[in-house]
Write a protein that binds this DNA or RNA. Structure first.
Lengths: 208, 208
DNA sequence: TTGCAGTTCAAACATGCGTTTGATACGCTT
DNA sequence: AAGCGTATCAAACGCATGTTTGAACTGCAA
């Protein structure tokens, strides 16, 4: 097992420091918004290091994505009822997406949903497609095999849409609801809401 | 009634040509991504015109937003049941948000949800807050006054989240579902899905 | 010590950006 | 025709960006 490491601890070698800083800055500002100089400043290395260890900004971005499948999120889950499995997934997904449990790496991926970068294709294949497939299986578990595929797909969209909304619109939402803060309790409530809301919705639209 | 005008027709005067081109380019690329040079190229005017007629890129952006309330979308609607009113709003909202009926101006506003610009505050006050209030009223019409405010707010988020997902994640979704195209029929189906899905969800989470 | 490959560095380079400038053209009144 | 304010233009300015350069440093083998 990999030991829990605080994100403040920096590796010795320049390459890894760059990767860590890159995930932070790309996740905060996006591919275009992030600057090589800011990444190097946070990593405490010279700007030329980006082109020495990688081959420019874009290659650093690709490397920062760590294109390995998110196996744990989409791992087969056989315990409990179909409803419980779907609820658990939503809870886990919302937890990762929201501020608290959101690693720079996750933030980096989420941004890709609405701000395409040069890595859009790779990200789609490596993360989003498996995620959609997994969620589709979970929904199918609830509604059975007879429900039309188009309707199931729309249910998947509805769930993803709700889950990502909380993160992607958080700045605007904070202006609209200044008193609303996403602490552990509110995230838990939001996840439970999305699960209940969606389960009822799923059953309704596939009941014909 | 204002006559239907094709968006290809260009006004004579430089200022209006700039506004039209600005909505296009800002809507496609966002505030930072858009360049003054590209806007001027599309408008067919000199780059200096931006600083002559407005006062720099940011002022042009603000002017392009046309900060007038979207009165028609949030107009009081008393006909039919509460469910019908909510369904109608969702249909109208989704229709505007999706490609077909989406004016450059609407696109410009939608982008603000997840990509804050210097105009975030103004947009929140002028568009988003009234929109949330209106949708909150519609949800209240369905669930009554006893439902907890926090639960109603989450329902509003769920609905907005679903509606905006279709647009904001469309590039990624097109990679995941290449065969899926949003023609008039699919938009209609998506809107109906969101309405049914949400009505069932709303009733479920406020039934305790 | 010498030589060499691997790293790091300050500095410069080329490009694209928003903005400014000074000249020029146009329309209008006198 | 002369004068004047408005509008447009090509060109340049100042700045930030990604990238490159060539020198300096490091550790290790010969």
């Amino acid at each position: 097992m990999s030991p829990l490491t605080t994100q403040s601890e920096l590796p010795e070698n320049t390459r890894d420091r760059l990767l860590i800083a890159a995930r932070e800055v790309f996740g905060e500002l996006g591919f275009k918004g992030a600057t090589v100089r800011e990444i190097c400043r946070r990593a405490g290395v010279n700007v030329a290091a980006v082109n020495y260890h990688f081959n420019g900004k874009e290659a650093l971005f690709m490397a920062a994505l760590e294109l390995e499948p998110i196996t744990d999120l989409i791992a087969p889950d056989e315990s409990g009822s179909a409803e419980e499995r779907l609820t658990r997934f939503i809870r886990e997904f919302v937890g990762r997406v929201m501020e608290q449990g959101c690693t720079p790496h996750t933030r980096l991926l989420l941004r890709e949903l609405h701000e395409p970068s040069p890595a859009l294709d790779s990200i789609a294949k490596t993360f989003i497609v498996p995620l959609h497939q997994h969620l589709t299986r979970l929904v199918r578990g609830v509604v059975g095999d007879e429900a039309p595929a188009a309707e199931v797909r729309r249910c998947v969209f509805s769930i993803f849409g709700q889950c990502t909304y909380y993160r992607n619109s958080r700045e605007m939402n904070h202006l609209v609801y200044p008193e609303l803060h996403y602490d552990e309790q509110e995230i838990e409530a939001a996840a439970r809401h999305i699960a209940e809301f969606s389960l009822a919705g799923i059953k309704r639209v596939t009941s014909d």
